[in-house]
């Protein structure tokens, strides 16, 4: 059942993004920023954790989940080390994803080449 909910919830979050793209003038970059900030806010309000435990990757793989990850990281760090945790928590939690993207980006640049789309 986990798999079904991951598919459905993940799909619905993407449909929400598609509606923003088709009906508003928001550029993709703005939609991504909106999603991440929305993730932080929803997580802070305590609304996102229930969805994440219900839909698994359906809630964590979309970029809202990235915002959720940042908020959770900050929450844990503040509880452990106090106010400094507000500075360190976000990047600590996001380190894996950002570093993986960075490494993959570099490797792709070394081995890949820009190609015509036509």
């Amino acid at each position: 059942m986990n798999f079904v909910w991951a598919f459905v919830i993940g799909g619905l979050i993407c449909v929400a993004g598609q509606l923003l793209m088709d009906y508003t003038k928001l550029t993709p970059a703005r939609i991504l920023v909106t999603y991440v900030v929305a993730g932080v806010v929803l997580s802070a309000l305590g609304w996102y954790e229930p969805l994440a435990s219900f839909a698994g990757c359906g809630a964590t793989v979309p970029l809202i989940g990235f915002g959720h990850l940042l908020a959770q990281g900050v929450l844990d760090s503040v509880e452990k080390i106090g106010l400094i945790g507000a500075l360190t928590g976000g990047f600590t939690a996001a380190a894996g994803g950002i570093t993986a993207s960075l490494v993959c980006g570099f490797l792709a640049a070394v081995f890949g080449q820009s190609k015509d789309q036509s």
Binding site: C14, L20, L32, G97, G105, F106
Partner: peptide, 25 residues
């Protein structure tokens, strides 16, 4: 796929990797 490929973490990775390849020159 539009937002179907934009919103997941794979879209974030694509946004990092594509300029890295493009601006290698």
């Amino acid at each position: 796929a539009g937002a179907g490929t934009l919103v997941p973490i794979t879209g974030f990775a694509n946004a990092v990797v594509s300029p890295a390849i493009e601006f290698k020159t």
